[in-house]
Design a protein around this nucleic acid. Structure first.
Lengths: 174, 174
DNA sequence: AAGGCCATGTAACAAGTTACATGATTAA
DNA sequence: TTAATCATGTAACTTGTTACATGGCCTT
């Protein structure tokens, strides 16, 4: 949030929440409520400060000098461990509890969704390259695309692992 | 948890927590406290039932018929959206706030950790193939390996995106 | 100027984490 | 048989989600 505020200037909670969704939402989620609560904390610590009250009691926050410093120090500490919860892996891991037909349907639907996501990323990359071309943004996008590529690859390999489940598909070449 | 309990039989909270770490910890985390709280809920709903009190007030839970059904229905509903929080992407995204040298160090350290992880997965795969060879388990492991492969690929591409940051590395071939 | 719809913020709940308490077990 | 350690469970706190309240804006 400090990073976002420092980049997009004075901004209220709602707008910040939206911007977060656009700017870092692909690899980090924040709900609106979290944003408001955290704004409070950041203000108490002197990392951000608010302008006058606007419509609907909204306030626009800016980062302070201490805030920039806090951001720097936080980044300087290095990244923490990532959190990955991939529910479809639970579906697979306990797939023996499902009817094969149902499991196949679920995976097909999942596959379709990933395809959409890959298209979204492709469009996003075009957009980014024509607009700002910031390497820091491009790097995060690149990660997203590689991740989706891995998912795609994984999906393509499933038939070889479950021959009975995908009878139409050829077994793996020896 | 229902899936785990049904597979590894009567088990107490502590042991279940450990097993979860081993069996699904690579793509799903559960703290011990969560396990205990959830055990309570599952028992209230009749999805699991406990044997007599053991040492230190421990109780071993087994899945009930309703529990199996609940597990089936839950899986049948299809996977929910995944949660991915990749802190290193924040480090990169806001990397402009860091000294280049520090950013490079952080990424080098990150890279080292991923390497360890790849080795861990490689060993795990050998183990799995010699022991049980369950395709459901192999499929989740395969995902892990592909994911780590994507991370590795991403790391290898960073120098091309940040030429000033990694001066030793060659720019991308045209 | 009244009704409906968005923008903004808040409150209540659920999930996740950290730190603690205490009963067994082992080793000196 | 006492001290140290480990196993098991619990409580307090933090973070994340869902549902709600309400004030301003736009349209007619």
């Amino acid at each position: 949030m400090l990073g976002l505020i420092s980049q997009i200037g004075p901004i209220n909670g709602n707008a910040l929440s939206q911007s977060a969704g656009i700017l870092i939402g692909d690899f980090w989620t924040l709900t609106r409520s979290q944003v408001y609560r955290e704004l409070q904390t950041l203000e108490e610590r002197g990392y951000i400060e608010a302008g006058p009250l606007g419509p609907r009691a909204s306030r626009e926050f800016s980062i302070t000098r201490q805030g920039v410093r806090a951001l720097h120090d936080w980044l300087d500490g290095g990244p923490s461990d990532e959190i990955i919860r991939f529910p479809v892996l639970l579906t697979i891991r306990f797939g023996a509890f499902l009817e094969p037909e149902r499991l196949r349907t679920i995976m097909a639907e999942f596959s379709r969704e990933r395809e959409e996501r890959r298209e979204y990323y492709a469009a996003l990359e075009v957009d980014m390259r024509t607009n700002n071309n910031d390497p820091f943004e491009l790097a995060t996008l690149r990660f997203g695309r590689l991740f989706e590529g891995a998912v795609e690859q994984w999906l393509s390999e499933l038939p070889a692992l479950f021959p009975e489940l995908f009878p139409g598909d050829a077994p793996p070449p020896a």
